[in-house]
């Protein structure tokens, strides 16, 4: 009835479309790690969160692209002007100090994890978890030991950073950060490693049963601060 070539062509194309769709769908589901729940409301909420995440990622990608463009424009404009080049270097130096540039160097990495003990066996459940005050004290000690740049789970510590308790998570730079806390600091590793000294704050945390791990490293990368620093009220006195 039909030409055999046409039949096989049509069937081939259909098989192609079907397997392509199935593969793409399987990968998408795997990537988003979606678990189907019986609760429709829960599913809708989860889908909503994923959709917002996606939008957020798209926006931040746009920002990154815009920043790259800006950088290129800047490079173009300062190319043949030594005075501007000097200024640019000053700006970069300043960015490094206030946390608007990615930095790299030797330092240490501290990992803090909650006590794994069953909460029923604890006298005070609050002793089992890492609190915002603990993070603050560790940061304080790191600064005392001469840390030049500090980040917690990828959040750069800048002059306007707040570290605030947010229930079962901690708000850092107004972003939610959860266990395990990985605190990275750049500085002289030997000096920073002194945080492990007896009766230092890490030692006290260990006493509470918090899992503390301190590693020295010659290659620590600390990301830049993603937000904007605004100074509306502080005016310079000439």
């Amino acid at each position: 009835m039909y030409n055999k070539k046409m039949v096989s062509c049509v069937l081939g194309v259909m098989c192609f479309a079907l397997t392509l769709g199935i593969c793409v769908q399987m990968r998408t589901v795997q990537e988003t790690n979606q678990t189907v729940s019986n609760n429709r409301q829960e599913n809708n909420l989860r889908a909503e969160v994923l959709r917002y995440k996606e939008r957020y990622e798209n926006r931040s990608r746009d920002v990154e692209r815009a920043e790259a463009d800006l950088e290129k424009e800047r490079q173009n404009s300062i190319q043949n002007n030594s005075a501007l080049q000097e200024k640019e270097e000053q700006i970069q130096q300043g960015n490094k100090i206030i946390g608007l540039a990615e930095v790299k160097g030797p330092g240490i990495k501290i990992t803090l994890k909650d006590n794994k003990k069953d909460i029923k066996n604890a006298l005070n459940p609050s002793d089992l978890v890492v609190h915002d005050e603990d993070i603050l004290s560790v940061i304080n000690e790191l600064r005392n030991a001469g840390a030049e740049a500090i980040s917690i789970n990828g959040q750069r510590i800048v002059p306007t950073t707040g570290i605030i308790c947010g229930g079962n998570i901690i708000d850092i730079n107004r972003e939610k950060v959860g266990v395990p806390f990985v605190i990275e600091a750049i500085g002289l590793p030997e000096q920073l490693a002194a945080l492990e000294r007896p009766y230092g704050y890490l030692d006290i945390l260990k006493g509470y049963g918090i899992e503390v791990k301190l590693e020295r490293s010659n290659n620590i990368t600390i990301p830049k601060y993603n937000g904007t620093l605004t100074y509306n009220y502080a005016k310079t006195i000439k």
């Binding site: 055999k4 039949v7 192609f16 397997t19 593969c23 990968r27």
Partner: peptide, 26 residues
């Protein structure tokens, strides 16, 4: 011939599907 076409279609679809960009969750 028909079976060969089906097989080629399936293999091509699977290969491209594995490497294609993922569609968004929406």
């Amino acid at each position: 011939m028909i079976f060969i076409a089906i097989l080629i279609g399936c293999i091509l679809g699977a290969l491209i599907g594995m490497n294609a960009p993922m569609i968004s969750y929406t």
